[in-house]
Nucleic acid binder design. Structure first.
Lengths: 233, 233
DNA sequence: CAGAAATGCGAGCGATCTCTCGTGTTTGTC
DNA sequence: GACAAACACGAGAGATCGCTCGCATTTCTG
């Protein structure tokens, strides 16, 4: 009875492909390995990713051993490597899923705002609240995205996310500063993301009322930083 | 002829103790090991620390192997361990020396300002310029202080530095907000340091004119963040 | 039910890294 | 010159980690 502790794992059960990452081939026949029997496997993948998120969040990427992830998930190392070709693929898949989830609650807030002429203060407050809430619920996301010990592939994913983030902020900022050169807008957006990251670090390091106070402090910092753009729209 | 490539190493040649870090004992007879012959040894220590700074700056702490540091310094692994009990001690000593050097050029600017009633804008500009210049000259400092893959001891050193930094900023800010609660001043100081770190990261990632533009952007961000304190002094 | 494929285990291989040890060399002291 | 201590070397011991392999078990298909 190898199935030792079959947790319920009440996950959503999305059909995200977790394999076929290393070789990168198999483009001739679409999918040369149809991969049947995904019920149990999909459950194990979710289980392993949850365990990986916990281990990554507490020890960082490099210090997290694959054996520790397997142990945290309650499976053997061999089982882990049945679903992921290597350690990097675990982080990639986890980061990918988190990014996907974030992009959802992200577009949810940003889309109705960009076209409208909402006051900048509300845009800032809403965006910050959403992002803070997401990062508090998924501490592994911060580690994977802002951790400096990550190998090449994840760094690329992070750069991609960062680029889209800056681009989004740029489009939000652009109408407020129509006569500013493009480079200046980029710098401002980059600073905004940087200030947000700095505030997020402080927020994650505190609890309760103190955390809330830092949220307000971050909002104030962003509002005042963008103050010169306020009166021109 | 074991002395392969005896570099000139035109260092200052300060008398900083680099050993006696792990055990922590030997407090009975002051120094139980007088350690003669410091001419060549002191040179090797400086040589090894320079090499470590280069390796740390390029690969980070955990990814930096002691063999790589020894190779970069042009000595054998055994020689490295003649002067440092372990890898952590190298980072500690390097961080300690950098912190000492920074504290010099730091007090140099801050001391004559705190007692005076210099406008806040100048305080910010002067401090930022000094810190930026220091961090550009010693990229390893940023890696050691803000790297998340560092073991316990260096993290303590970093926390100590961070605490003194925040305390200093608090004392600078306090006269500008005499009727604010202590906790609020602390939060503001913490945010200042965070914003500075975020700006520093952007500045280090750019060159030439773009770098200068980000320096201005950082100064502006700090000035506007502290704007509410301007008129009360 | 029979065969195949997916899933599961865990010992252990190979690579890497930190740190040691035995030995040889340089330098200071008398 | 003689002795000792500091300095230097480099092979490798010891430990860890990513990952594999052979084999057992479960589940799907027909």
């Amino acid at each position: 009875m190898p199935e030792k502790t079959e947790k319920p794992a009440p996950e959503t059960g999305e059909a995200t492909a977790a394999e076929a990452a290393t070789t990168g081939e198999a483009a001739t026949t679409g999918e040369d390995r149809p991969r049947r029997r995904q019920a149990r496997g999909e459950r194990r993948i979710a289980q392993l990713l949850e365990a990986a998120a916990r281990v990554f969040a507490t020890t960082g990427y490099t210090a997290a051993s694959t054996n520790a992830i397997a142990r945290e998930a309650g499976v053997s190392p061999g089982t882990l490597y049945q679903f992921f070709p290597n350690k990097e693929a675990i982080a990639i898949e986890l980061g990918s899923r988190l990014m996907h989830e974030m992009r959802q609650s992200y577009d949810e807030v940003l889309t109705p705002i960009t076209s409208d002429t909402t006051p900048l203060e509300e845009v800032i407050a809403g965006t910050v609240d959403r992002f803070i809430e997401f990062n508090c619920r998924h501490p592994a996301f911060f580690v994977l995205m802002h951790g400096p010990d990550i190998p090449g592939r994840i760094a690329e994913e992070h750069d991609a996310l960062h680029a889209t983030l800056v681009a989004r902020v740029e489009t939000i900022l652009a109408p407020f500063a129509p006569d500013a050169p493009q480079a200046a807008v980029t710098r401002t957006a980059q600073m905004c993301v940087g200030i947000y990251k700095a505030g997020l670090e402080l927020i994650l390091a505190h609890e309760g009322d103190e955390r809330e106070a830092y949220v307000q402090e971050l909002k104030g910092a962003l509002v005042r930083y963008l103050e010169p753009l306020m009166g021109t729209s």
